[in-house]
């Protein structure tokens, strides 16, 4: 894109006298990335063109949100089971306390599954 004659004052030229400072932003500040400011680490490769800077895999992203929600719900259930186990043990029903522990272990396995099932999603 050339600047038409007469648009700049005389002796003016755009950019810096130091060629270093005229490099593209990405070269001067490699830390500034296409995702900077978006707070969205899911974008791993954006580029020019439609869809740049948005979710690359929205369906995976929704699945990941669902996994977090599931895991949190299960942990709430575990907290409840711990109170039941404590009450049961204090009342002398050790069996009930062990059953609650079993429930807790099963819940833990569900959470681990939710965590590990697809390691690429972020």
């Amino acid at each position: 894109m050339s600047v038409p004659e007469g648009h700049y004052p005389e002796n003016y030229h755009p950019g810096s006298d130091q060629p270093d400072l005229n490099r593209p932003v990405h070269e001067r500040y490699p830390q500034i990335r296409a995702t900077s400011g978006y707070a969205d680490p899911r974008v791993t490769r954006t580029g020019p063109g439609p869809g740049a800077g948005t979710d690359q895999q929205p369906e995976r992203s929704a699945a990941l949100s669902a996994r977090v929600a599931l895991a949190v719900t299960v942990v709430i259930g575990q907290l409840w089971a711990l109170t039941v186990a404590t009450d049961a043990w204090m009342k002398g029903s050790t069996d009930t306390a062990w059953w609650c522990t079993g429930f807790s272990v099963a819940s833990f396995l569900v959470v681990v599954l939710a965590w590990r099932i697809s390691r690429q999603d972020r």
Binding site: Q78, L82, W89, A97, C100, T101, S104, S107, F108
Partner: peptide, 11 residues
């Protein structure tokens, strides 16, 4: 929580 529940049940 699993560890906690186990130690509670173990007494």
């Amino acid at each position: 929580l699993v560890v906690g529940s186990t130690v509670v049940a173990a007494g």
